[in-house]
Structures are given as C-alpha cells and as structure tokens.
Amino acid sequence: MNILIHFFTPAKITLEAYYQALAQADLGWHEGTNDPEPFIKYMLGIILKCYREFEERLIISEKSGKRSSSCDIVKTYVNGTIGTFTKRDTMENCPSLGSSSVESALKKLVEDGTIIRKGLGRASHYIRKDAIE
C-alpha cells in the first residue's frame, strides 16, 4: 500500500505540474494512442494530499480535545509545525477557532516564549523558538 501511495503522490502539486500531466496524457491524441494515466495519477495525488491534510487537522482536534482552550489547540498545531507559519496557516489548520481566538493564542505563545514573531501586520509570521536554537 505504501508503494502505491508514494507512486501516486506528485512531487510538486502546482499549476505547472497540472499542465505537464495534462500534456503527457494528450500525447498521441490525434492518432488515438494517448494514455490518460499521467493525468489520473496527478489527480489521485491531489486527492491523497487533501486526505492527508484532513487527517492532520483531525489529529490536531483529537489531541486538543473538545474542552481545550484556543491556546491549547494552537499550541498543538504549532508543535507539529516545521519552519515558519502565519496566522492564516494557523486558522486553516485549526478550523474550529475564529480569527480573534487564533490571534489571541498566538499572542500568548509569543509572550510565554514558545514562538517568535517576525515581521509586522500582514507580513508577520511565526517560528517555534526551539526551531532556531
């Protein structure tokens, strides 16, 4: 099963990869010898990526529990994050929280030293403190 999952997952899911898969599937179309396999693999890769992201979000929800505070939910997300992230990233990965709850939680995490804020306003992004040490 893992071989199939790796096989179907495109390395880079971009508009360029989409058009490349479409072009490969269209080769020989006029002669009736085209092969839709590259496009099918691309689309299955997209579906798989969506399911993986959904599973990650469920794991965050399960770990945080129903009675967890917004700060606990955001902290669970942050602990599983590699590299920088934004408020928007946090909101997408913690869908049970509103904008003000995420903002408040990020502010608390900055104050307690769990994360570091870089930039201001819309250009601000965050990184775990232990990631830069």
Rank of each mutant, 00 (worst) to 15 (best):
D89I: 06
K12Q: 14
R88C: 07
S96F: 01
I60T: 13
I116D: 03
A17G: 05
K118Y: 07
I40M: 07
K129C: 03
S101Y: 04
I115E: 03
S99T: 09
R88V: 15
I116F: 04
E56G: 06
E62W: 01
C94Y: 06
R128M: 02
H30E: 13
L97W: 01
A105T: 11
W29S: 05
R117M: 04
E92W: 02
G121Y: 09
S68K: 05
I5A: 13
M43K: 04
G113R: 09
E103T: 13
D26F: 00
V110Q: 01
A105Y: 09
T86C: 04
D26I: 01
F8A: 11
D112R: 07
V110M: 01
R52K: 15
H125A: 10
F8M: 13
P38Q: 11
A11W: 03
Y126A: 03
K75N: 02
G65P: 14
I46Q: 09
G83W: 04
F39Y: 02
S124R: 07
L15S: 15
K66S: 14
G83P: 06
I82S: 08
I5Q: 11
F85I: 06
A21Y: 01
S124H: 11
A17H: 13
G113C: 07
K108P: 01
L120A: 09
I82N: 14
S64P: 05
L120N: 05
R52E: 15
S101A: 13
T90A: 12
R67P: 04
E56A: 11
T9N: 05
E92N: 15
L106G: 00
K118F: 12
R52H: 12
R52Q: 14
S64K: 03
Y19T: 11
G119E: 12
L97D: 02
